[in-house]
Write a protein that binds this DNA or RNA. Structure first.
Lengths: 131, 131
DNA sequence: GTGATTGCAAAATCTTTGCAGGGAC
DNA sequence: GTCCCTGCAAAGATTTTGCAATCAC
């Protein structure tokens, strides 16, 4: 994959936007440092990144726009319907628990490759270092 | 909520479409039995149903359109990126496992209300009664 | 030089909205 | 009768696409 100026800027912006931005939000961030980058390019670049496995699309139940997640390490999501916030949640113990569960319980015909737990709840304030 | 002809038809269609249809697919199904129902009405009715808790929106990572799930009982999703299929997966043991986990581990500031596990994998063929 | 990538703008999708008329209660 | 709901069509929002020019390699 070619390292064009635009793509580098977009990747930079993704790391700045540590939440789960929409394509539009990524574009706004990119334009702040490089006003010539077009929204179409952002869409194309994000597609490329997803195809390359650099980022993932987040499954947002509500809200119209798709969102992207710059962080590809396995993690889970806390979702607050009130604020539309999506917060990363990491917990190795939880991962192990689920992984062990599927190790013993075969899903016939389905080969699990990964999983992500979406936890819905209210008033997210992860004021400890949980994130 | 008023039980209009259109809404009844839409609910019927949702139960026929046991997978996770888009608004467009619901509309096609409804029109098959009642050609006068408009797409706009389908959107409005689906919104009402979601607000009333009768159905939920499914978090589809890929694909442009939102999808709806007529089944509100707690369940998980098997997702195959190749076929874009979303398959319901139910497992009380898994539910208990996760519920117990969060019972002991408090997320500070976040009050979990529900959860859903999204399992990504390949070639789903749940040829047993797992579904 | 070659082929992937960009910018632009138009098109295609998907969803929401406004409003007058109609139906459920 | 009242107020919510419908149909329609237009608007809005989001995403994709085509193509000539440009850039990374």
């Amino acid at each position: 994959m070619r390292a064009t100026r635009q793509r580098v800027r977009i990747l930079e912006s993704l790391s700045v936007l540590c939440d789960h931005p929409t394509a539009e939000q990524v574009h706004r961030q990119v334009v702040a440092t490089d006003p010539t980058v077009s929204l179409g390019t952002v869409y194309k670049a994000l597609d490329s990144f997803v195809a390359a496995g650099l980022i993932t699309r987040v499954a947002a139940a509500d809200g119209a726009a798709r969102r992207y997640d710059a962080d590809c390490s396995a993690h889970h999501h806390l979702y607050c319907p009130d604020t539309q916030e999506i917060i990363d949640y990491r917990d190795p113990q939880l991962d192990a628990l689920i992984r062990d569960f599927f190790a013993t319980r075969q899903l016939s015909g389905f080969q699990p490759q990964g999983f992500s737990l979406h936890i819905t709840g209210t008033r997210p304030r992860l004021d400890d270092g949980q994130k």
